[in-house]
Each structure stands twice: as structure tokens, then as C-alpha cells.
């Protein structure tokens, strides 16, 4: 099964993230799946480490779920790592998708958290459509997947 993002969905998600980035005054905001794949990114490139951040965030979020289980919770819906200069807020959007925000001392955790939950509500409905496959038929019908000849690497 593939997770398909068509251009229209991508634009909606990108606009939602841009708005969240602007309102929260974070440095970068991203959507990734729980397997660690980056879906949409808005803001700074964070030392070209977007793929790595996405992989580590998915791992960190999954790891805390064991702790949640010990405490009798289904899962922690959000976690927060505080640094001296940069902090990170991670929240579950739905079963497969995480929202994360990287921010510095120019904003506050409370502000980021508040706008994050607003953004999640918007993004959740978009993803529900994507995951249910309703949108998949509307991707570019002219696109085809032809594998190049020769070794890949």
C-alpha cells in the first residue's frame, strides 16, 4: 500500500502548516508519518536534517508509547523536548501522522501548543480523506512509473 499525496492535498496541507508556522512563530514545522517519512515541511531547512529529524521524532514518539501503556494510557498524544536554545513539540494528528514544531526562545511552548491543536483539527480532516483513499483517484492520471535501466546505486 502506498500513501499518496496529490498536488491539491499537498497544497492544502502546506497552507495549513504555513499558517501554523506564522501564528506560532516557530522556526520549522513538519508532518511526518509514524514510520519516519517526511510528508510536508514548512520553515527553515534545519541544517538539511529534515529526513533525520523526521526519523528520530517518529522513534522518540513511538518509544514513549510504552511508557504511556505502563501508566494505563492508550498513548501520549503530545510530547515536548525542551532545549536551551531550541525546543521541539510533537503531537499525534491521527493514527499514522505526527505534527512537529521546532522553535527557539522567540516564542513560547504554550503558544506553539495552542496553535498546534488548532492546526491538527484542520489537518486531521484532510488526512482522513487521504487515508480512506477518497482522494487517490484524483492524482495525475498521466503519471507513470518507469524504472530506469542499470543499477540504482
Amino acid at each position: 500500500m502506498a500513501f499518496v499525496l496529490n498536488p491539491a492535498t499537498y497544497e492544502v496541507l502546506e497552507a495549513d502548516l504555513d499558517e501554523f508556522l506564522k501564528n506560532s512563530e516557530a522556526n520549522a514545522v513538519m508532518l511526518c508519518d509514524r514510520g519516519g517519512n517526511i510528508i510536508v515541511h514548512s520553515g527553515e531547512s534545519v541544517n538539511d536534517s529534515v529526513d533525520l529529524i523526521s526519523a528520530l521524532v517518529a522513534g522518540a514518539f513511538a518509544a514513549t508509547q510504552q511508557l504511556a501503556a505502563v501508566l494505563g494510557e492508550d498513548e501520549f498524544t503530545a510530547i515536548f523536548h525542551q532545549g536551551k536554545q531550541t525546543s521541539i513539540f510533537i503531537a499525534a494528528v491521527e493514527e499514522e501522522v505526527l505534527l512537529l514544531a521546532l522553535f527557539d526562545n522567540n516564542t513560547t511552548a504554550g503558544l506553539v501548543k495552542m496553535y498546534a491543536f488548532n492546526a491538527i483539527n484542520k489537518i486531521r480532516s484532510t488526512f482522513t480523506d487521504v487515508m480512506s483513499g477518497e482522494d487517490v483517484e484524483h492524482h495525475d492520471p498521466t503519471a507513470s512509473f518507469v524504472i530506469n535501466k542499470g543499477p540504482i546505486f
Binding site: 502506498a2 498536488p7 503519471a143
Partner: peptide, 9 residues
Amino acid sequence: MALVNYAKK
């Protein structure tokens, strides 16, 4: 699960 982004190809 492969992730296919038609917007960014």
C-alpha cells in the same frame, strides 16, 4: 508504506 508525493514528484 511508500509515500508518493505527486506535487514534489
